[in-house]
């Protein structure tokens, strides 16, 4: 079957919320309401003529006015595929910190959706309700923000690890600012401590940490300049 046949079957089976088929697109797609997503996917998976056994990909796309979640389904038996979309409108002033859109999870239908949805939550901040294991997957658990949002701000460091290009190395930082005061010197030791004789490396002493605020970073998530690294 081609996309048109699948769409007409789907629109007939699922009572409401199934939009028209956009045939002008390169991959014709159907937009469904978030509320009718699970019935639509259930139908596509179980119907004998559709038999979408495989969920290839789950993608969240951030646009100006909405976030849309795109599902690429395909059938190994019938060798056809379909693109399904669902949209969540952006509220006024919805930034990546304040606005977390919610879409029902299809992880109960396809095991492959589990990791894909976790990844979209991690990178784009789309919450999939009723997901069995809704954690971050690629970034550390304690990461702040969702990096693929357009208004994401790059961090300076994470978990004590510097992420800036001109950050002061960790080991030099420790020498410059000792964490605890040196123990009182026992009697009989020389007043002038010689440098560590086993060290091959030039002494790092005197490297003052640069201003931690201000323009420490030379790299900024700049606007798209069309290349030219």
């Amino acid at each position: 079957m081609n996309e048109t046949d699948i769409h007409s079957k789907l629109a007939g089976a699922v009572v409401s919320g199934v939009g028209a088929l956009d045939e002008s697109a390169k991959d014709p797609f159907v937009v469904v309401d978030p509320g009718s997503l699970v019935p639509a996917v259930t139908f596509l998976k179980n119907d004998a003529d559709c038999r979408m056994e495989m969920l290839n990909c789950v993608t969240a796309v951030e646009r100006e006015d909405c976030i849309e979640v795109v599902y690429h389904l395909s059938s190994v038996t019938h060798r056809h595929s379909l693109t399904l979309k669902t949209r969540v409108e952006r509220p006024a002033g919805g930034t990546h910190e304040s606005w977390i859109p919610e879409v029902p999870s299809v992880a109960a239908l396809y095991a492959s959706a589990d990791w894909h949805e976790r990844e979209q939550w991690d990178l784009l901040g789309v919450r999939f309700t009723d997901h069995p294991d809704h954690r971050r997957i690629l970034l550390p658990e304690e990461w702040i923000g969702h990096p693929l949002r357009k208004d994401y701000v790059y961090p300076h460091e994470h978990g004590g690890m510097p992420l800036d290009l001109d950050a002061v190395p960790l080991y030099e930082r420790d020498e410059a600012t000792p964490s605890e005061p040196a123990a009182p010197r026992p009697s009989g030791t020389p007043l002038v401590q010689p440098p560590n004789p086993n060290s091959d490396r030039p002494d790092a002493g005197g490297v003052a940490p640069a201003d931690s605020d201000g323009d420490l970073r030379s790299i900024k998530p700049g606007s798209n300049d069309g290349g030219g690294h």
Partner: peptide, 29 residues
Amino acid sequence: ELGFYVVAEGGTSPIRCRTRAPSFCNLSV
């Protein structure tokens, strides 16, 4: 199956560039 899903809005770079990585799905099992 390696899939690329690209959404363009007319600029010199896409607004979304999704990779459907085969290893990612194969590892999930």
